[in-house]
Every structure is written in structure tokens, then in C-alpha cells.
Amino acid sequence: MTMKSNLSHQKGAGRGDILLGLVGLFLLYLLYDSGFFTAEAWADFNRRFYQNFVKDSRYMMLVDGLKATVFMTSGATVIGVIVGLILSVIRVAYKGGVPIPILNKFAEAYISVLRGTPAMVQLLIWNFTIFASARDLNTQYIAILAFGLNSGAYVAEIFRGGIESIDPGQMEAARSLGLSYGSSMRHVILPQALRNVVPMLFNEFIALLKETSIAGYIGIDDLTRAGQNIQALTLEHSQPLVMVAIIYLIIVLFLTHLVRKLENWLSRGKRG
């Protein structure tokens, strides 16, 4: 409850702010890149722009990179939500008196280890240690696993907060009718908790999108790496990466906008 109202009280960027931000960013870049708005500088910019993105359809490298980024983010989100849900239910159930001390210890350890070490190190360990001998496995799947399991630890805490925000009376009422703990969780607690945490899950998805930019370290040509690949081809120092940054920003701002819509819709949907 409180989490949701906190979120919905944030005054966020509207469509106008987004556009303004983009234009400003682009202008700043132009200033930095060309020094002055001379005809030569503009021509030079255009020439390099052509080199970087148009010649030999190099923009396709960015498109393919974006595809990899979106694919990894989506896959990791699915794993993250499933793992997070399981971990949070284990922890809440244990606290609520279900005798599963070993599972609970495991969940606690999982969460503290995966949250306590850098995602990058985890990614490298998955790729170069655990799956070191599985060379015919698509590295993108390894990345999805690494990012997904990492995200699961964070999602677990989101879910736990969501479940614990539900009035204990709901569980009592369900149990008082003879429903088992599991049924009460499934039919009464989780549907309400889920509704409360949807905006935060979406934010986790957005965070993941940015986090996958380290996938290049295990040789995946994601969006970030695609920018670097263009750099290597054209020996151009700034345009490709700034373009990459703008693409991330557009996606993130768009998703943030969606979350806000979703929050409004959810709070309107909340009856009473």
C-alpha cells in the first residue's frame, strides 16, 4: 500500500519533458562535437554520421544489438520473476510458521550472495567457469540465466515487501474458512500482492535493460557492444556510443512513461 502510493506520488516526466530532454542532449552533443556551428563542422558531422550509421548499412549493427539486448532483458525478467516469486514465498511462508528451515536458509543465502556480488562478476563466472566447457551453447542463454538469477534476488525482495504489505487479517480470514496455507497464499494473498508490486517489477525490468550492457564482456553483440564494434570499424570516438546512449534513453523514458500509466490505471482500478 505505502509502496504504491509513494510511487504514484512521484511527479514524473511527461511527453514534453522527454522531447525537451532529447533535444537538449542532442544539442549538447553537437556543441561538444563540433565546437561551433560552422558549415565545415556540420559537413564533417554529416560525413562521419554517414560513415558510422549509413555506409554498409551499419545501423543494422545497432538494430541487431538492440534485438539482443531486448531478448536478454525479456528472458532474464521472466526468470527473475519466477525465481523471485519462489524465493519470496519460501521466506514469507517460513516466517508464517511453515516448517521449511532449510529452504529458508537457502533463500536467504541466495539473496545475500547474488545481491552482494557485482552482476558483472556473476556473469563472468557463469560464462567462464560454470559453462566454460559448454562452448556450443549460445552465450545469450548464459547471459539470460546470469541476469535472470541475479534479478531474482532483487525481485524476491520486491515480492516479499508486496506480500508483507497485505493485512495479516486476509490470511486469517482465508485460513478461518478452512483453506490451506498454500491455497490462501495463491487465491488471496498473492493476487493482491502482485497488484501492488507490478510498478516495481516494471522498474526492475528497466534496470535490467541497462544492466545487460555488460553482456559484451562475454562476447555478446548487444546494443552497447554494437556501438563499440562500429567504433572499431570507423575509428570514430564519440558518435556511435552517444547514439547507443540515446537509444537506451529513448527506450527507458518510454518504459518509464508506461509504468506511470500503469500506476495510474492500477490506482484507478483500486476500488473505493
Binding site: Q170, E172, A174, G178, P191, Q192
Partner: peptide, 20 residues
């Protein structure tokens, strides 16, 4: 106890209807 509770139901001070 779940079998017992089916036959011994409780009405609470704060109702605890399922809002969803």
C-alpha cells in the same frame, strides 16, 4: 485443523473480506 475450521467459521471485527 483445516477440516475443523470448515465447520467452525469465524466472523472478524474488521470483516476481512477479500478486496480483489
Amino acid at each position: 485443523i483445516n477440516l475443523v475450521r470448515r465447520k467452525m467459521c469465524m466472523v472478524f471485527q474488521h470483516f476481512h473480506l477479500f478486496p480483489h
